[in-house]
Design a protein around this nucleic acid. Structure first.
Lengths: 196, 196
DNA sequence: GCCGTTCTGGACGAAATAGTCAAGAATGCC
DNA sequence: GGCATTCTTGACTATTTCGTCCAGAACGGC
């Protein structure tokens, strides 16, 4: 047959993702990725196409991973929905705080840099945010059914507030806000959710 | 004496700012800025130094403008503090919604792209966020004194939540979330502020 | 009007960067 | 082992982009 690939595609994609995550799309050079992965440029181009195709591929994979992770953390019985919501929001804040290099959320970062002039990224980011919002909405609604959040409020709006707050915490984290403050914001977002 | 400048420095800086705002630091070419401003590169380099110095200058100016604007909108008598807070938060959301090209907040965008590897931008972004947070905190505290927000909560934490929410609305707006949803988030952020 | 000074515009050089290509290497099938 | 096929490597090309430089232009003071 033919010569098999000598690299693990998943590992290469993760390494490349980290480069894009750190330095952005325009700021990342193909040679950086080649050096970081140890691959020659021919292999990169042969396996993934050009820079933009590689980025879209990585972005797609990342969105799917993020949404899967959110689904696993947010879906479950109504009785524990509020606790899951808490864990998810505080976990996001803790991730931001633990991230020494302040990368934030790749979806938001790529959308900020590229969405204006890159329809492929814009479409995917919109879809990802919509799905995350759907998962959060379902979890808020579950917490309302369980009596942990007041029922009078539109769960989609409360979910939107939580989603925006997490993105905002990341944005402030990128600016280097103090870590106690960031966690305080996440805690406050949960505190102000209307109690029954 | 000498030949005077033939361009308005403020107008050139605003035009250049718009280019950086749209395409990011790494994605903006000096030639783009030269074309957009109508200046030759010699004039640009002579007046502002290299690309990075120009960006830092623009970023500084923008931070100062944003903070001045926030101060004007947020400072005033206690009795109207809550209304000012409302106007500020909803006005920010409306700006995001009206911004067809989804640029969001330049401070957040530059911090997201550059803070990790550019200490000058990181330092300035941190300072700007801290000052905005201070202005919001003072306004929240004023609204608490006036009895429009419950006094039991730390005004700095509530202010942080509002600041993060605004940054988050912008992040979601860049992804192209629906406009009604974005305004709903801003309204919800105000609704859930604890009433006395 | 002349002169020194600063500004202007764009050609130019140097470096960086995206993407291609060809020669050789690794594999399984025969 | 020979062969067809695909992968690998890195040199190479073409392009982009930053930044410089200089000849000429515009100005105020004399």
């Amino acid at each position: 047959m033919a010569r098999p690939r000598s690299f693990d595609e998943g590992a290469v994609l993760r390494t490349a993702r980290d480069r894009f995550w750190s330095t952005g799309y325009a700021g990342t050079k193909i040679d950086d990725i080649a050096a970081a992965t140890g691959l020659g440029k021919g292999s990169l181009y042969g396996a993934f196409g050009d820079k933009h195709a590689l980025f879209v591929r990585i972005f797609d994979d990342h969105c799917a991973t993020a949404i899967d992770g959110a689904r696993r953390k947010l879906e479950g019985p109504d009785s524990e929905a509020y606790q899951r919501l808490r864990d998810y929001v505080l976990g996001d804040a803790d991730t931001v705080i633990a991230d020494e290099i302040h990368r934030g959320c790749l979806i938001a970062k790529a959308a900020a840099e590229c969405a204006e002039h890159d329809q492929e990224i814009a479409t995917r980011a919109r879809k990802a945010f919509r799905e995350l919002n759907g998962l959060l909405t379902a979890c808020v609604a579950a917490a309302q059914r369980a009596g942990d959040i007041a029922g009078g409020h539109d769960p989609a709006r409360l979910a939107g507030l939580l989603l925006a707050t997490m993105r905002g915490i990341e944005a402030l984290g990128k600016g280097g806000c103090d870590q106690a403050g960031l966690r305080g914001i996440a805690e406050t977002a949960l505190e102000v959710l209307p109690k029954p």
